[in-house]
Design a protein around this nucleic acid. Structure first.
Length: 204
DNA sequence: TGGACGATCCCCT
DNA sequence: GGGGATCGTCCAT
């Protein structure tokens, strides 16, 4: 398997969102490799009122305007991080939110990362009796499992810390499409893609 | 300088 | 199905 080349990310955002399904997300953490497979994405495009980039470039969303193939990580609700794959040319301001992944390797470490830290209430799940799917079936959950946070904002996906490996293209019949989740504007766009029947998809 | 809000998650009802 | 947790960011005073 090879890293997805820069050219992969420079294509139209909706196509990238669909083609990211099935690719392998590798996160190197303390010398260990956490490997998962992307099973759910959402596209955020130019002129899209739901996009962080809609109101222009700021310190927070700056990475979203970088050249495709970088990781845009934002902090939300006072406690959660979400990870996006930047797409398009420099200045485009488009990205794909990674909404869910299927854990493949390093599951024990992901489970520990997801466990509730002491002193925090809402952040972190109780480690006992957590269903396997609960590990990474949501954008903030997978960031917690893979320990992706502010420090990873701007990471080059062609580097060695976080990268994506190509996979054989999924048959079109196995890909589902729907409206995006958790937004109040731009809700009519069907820019969410997911692997049909996969247990780690956030909403069935 | 203050206030509203958010591409969420967890837990309880 | 609903509320609370919790805080950085942005824009209006």
């Amino acid at each position: 398997m090879k890293k997805l080349p820069r050219s992969f990310y420079l294509r139209p955002t909706i196509r990238v969102a669909r083609d990211l399904l099935g690719t392998y997300l590798v996160r190197i953490l303390n010398g260990k490799r956490l490997i998962s497979r992307i099973v759910e994405t959402e596209a955020y495009c130019q002129g899209d009122p739901a996009s962080h980039a809609f109101n222009g470039r700021t310190r927070r969303n700056d990475v979203m305007f970088w050249k495709g193939g970088h990781l845009y990580v934002y902090f939300t609700y006072g406690m959660h991080y979400c990870a996006n794959v930047v797409t398009g040319e420099e200045g485009a301001g488009e990205a794909v939110l990674i909404r869910a992944v299927e854990p493949l390797d390093g599951v024990d470490l992901m489970t520990r990362n997801r466990a509730r830290p002491t002193g925090r209430k809402a952040l972190g799940a109780s480690q006992e009796s957590m269903p396997a799917a609960n590990l990474t079936n949501g954008p903030a959950k997978l960031c917690q499992a893979l320990d992706i946070r502010r420090e990873q904002d701007g990471t080059d996906l062609l580097g060695g810390e976080i990268y994506l490996l190509s996979a054989s293209r999924l048959p079109a019949s196995t890909i589902g499409r729907s409206k995006r989740i958790g937004i109040v504007k731009g809700t009519e766009k069907e820019w969410r893609f997911y692997v049909k029947g996969n247990a780690w998809v956030s909403k069935r």
